[in-house]
Amino acid sequence: MTAPGSGTAARETAPPRPLTESELDRLHAAGASARFLALTGAVALALLLILMVDVAVRNPDALLHAANAQTGTTVIAETLFAVASLGAVALLWSYGRSVAAFLRGEAALPLAFRRMRQFVILWTILTALTALLDLSAAWASF
């Protein structure tokens, strides 16, 4: 097993490593999936926004009634999820585009991996908050 941190020098001095054909194929698949997720997420969020604006204009009382029908933790969780999804859509789209640019021959792999790191950070924070809300809901159920 490698000692923690001992790989820093090895990474810094390592020559650029060419990716194999199978690794390039997997990277292509990752980029395509990321773009699909970003597009689907953007359409879903846009539809949700249109629906909410439409209901708010036509029948604002119904919107308040629908919000009151849910528990506070559910409303907070849904709001957090919507905000995080917006960020995730942007990050995944950027990741997919960077991967495509890299496969075309541009030096965009660091940007793609940076976007994936930011996506993971965002999702970690969301998961932590959701777990806390779930825990409070489970506590209330007992």
Binding site: G7, R11, E12, A14, P16, R17, P18, L19, L24, F102, L103, G105, E106, A107, L109, P110, F113, R114, M116, R117, V120, I121, W123, T124, T127
Partner: peptide
């Protein structure tokens, strides 16, 4: 071509390691 993993890309991957384990 430039389809190689440069040290900057490796740094991004290693910076994400702790977060991925946390997630």
């Amino acid at each position: 071509g430039p389809r190689v993993v440069v040290p900057e890309a490796l740094r991004e991957l290693t910076a994400a390691a702790g977060w991925v384990r946390g997630l």
